[in-house]
Computed example of a mutant assay.
Amino acid sequence: MSATPPRIAVLGSFMQACCWSVDRLPRPGETLRARGFVAEAAGKGLAVAVGCHRLGARVDLLMAIGNDAPADSLLSWLHGEGLDTRRILRCGQPSGHGAGFIGADGDNQIVVHPGANEALGPDQIAAAEEDIASAALLYAQLEVPLDTVRAALARARAHGVLAVLNPSPWQALPDDVLACTDVLVVNAGEAQALLECALPAGRDQRLRAIASALPALWRRWPGNWLVVTLGDQGSAAWSRDGAHHVAAPIPTRIVKTIGAGDAFSAGLCRALAGGRSMAAALETAGACAAWSIAHPGILASLPDRDGLRAMLRTGA
């Protein structure tokens, strides 16, 4: 990675996560006794911002939080982490909240309420234009309003900043949002919706199905890279010019799977912002995801540079 820390702008989201550990996920109408409970700060954009920061990037976090106790705790934690909070908007409504059930096998079910995340609007993006223009990369996700995502991606495009979008939670992407996106990062379920094709279970079959569906996507989307995470099957990336990279998973113990996708995105963004190739970025991203699932917590499980190096050695 580059010696000079790259600057990354992150369109953030904050969810106060409440997670219950259960032997198995509940069926509809069923009540289960939990083995454990934890409440902690989470959120797709927040986790990616923290992950990029720990990996040595200079991060500008654009985010909205409530005027409540979870928001107070988050700000105190971010200050301790050394992450810049000047672009965080405080508003009167409650902070975002999420509830998750985590099974003994690592599977999970999650429900979220956006709360204050809906207050992050195009005005805040306009106020941060100088930060976006100075960034090497902008990362966006869909836990904030689509109009806000649209505004951020458009400003990144106007300033020649690499724009990375994780369309999660999934919703159909308008053409003008796609037009301003350089890199799409999706999981297997989101890939099926994006490509409008079913993905079989096997990795090789999945890769062939995605490759077959790509021409239709390239006709609609002028972007450069589609990155697909495949859980315990690793990840892959396809470019408009025909390049294709596959990264094998790094074997590790599984403590939990919540947050692995955000850890992957943080590693990917840090590597791309630092000028690494897509093949190298996939390797970095996969190592970050593997470290995350092997450690407890959401933000706590995001690796720093020492953790990333240790996991890369494990996968060597």
Results as ranks from 00 to 15, higher is better:
A271F: 07
L146I: 11
A104E: 12
Q192I: 13
S134L: 10
D107S: 13
L61A: 01
L89A: 09
G51T: 00
A271R: 07
N67L: 08
P222S: 14
A34S: 12
A271L: 05
A179V: 14
F37D: 07
G274D: 03
P303I: 01
L83R: 12
P114H: 14
L207H: 04
D68P: 05
L62W: 09
H79A: 15
D105V: 03
A140W: 05
T252A: 15
A271I: 13
D204F: 01
L184Q: 02
L32K: 08
A287W: 00
A135I: 00
A294L: 08
A266V: 05
N117P: 14
G231C: 12
L46H: 10
C197S: 06
P26F: 11
I254N: 08
V59M: 15
A260E: 00
G259C: 01
A260K: 01
R24Q: 11
A281S: 04
R208E: 12
I293P: 01
L230R: 09
A163V: 14
G189A: 14
V164W: 05
E118V: 14
E143Q: 09
Q124E: 13
A135E: 04
L74D: 00
S277I: 10
Q109P: 00
N224K: 13
G45M: 07
L62P: 00
V185L: 15
H295D: 11
V161E: 03
P26T: 07
R240N: 02
T257E: 02
A281T: 02
G267R: 00
L230W: 04
C269P: 05
V177Q: 05
A140Y: 05
L268A: 00
C19Y: 10
A237L: 04
G115S: 06
L268N: 04
W218V: 07
A316W: 11
P296W: 05
L83W: 15
R24T: 08
N187M: 14
A236L: 13
D72W: 04
D241M: 08
N117K: 01
F14S: 03
L46W: 11
A179R: 15
Q109V: 15
L207G: 13
K44N: 07
Q93Y: 03
R309P: 11
A237H: 10
D304Y: 06
S134N: 11
R203F: 06
S73D: 10
I88K: 03
V48W: 00
A9Q: 01
L162T: 12
H79C: 15
W20N: 02
V228S: 01
M278P: 02
A271N: 10
D175A: 15
A188I: 12
Q141L: 04
R7H: 08
R253F: 12
P94Y: 02
G106M: 03
A191W: 07
W291A: 04
D123L: 14
G29H: 06
A71S: 09
E81L: 13
A151E: 09
G231W: 04
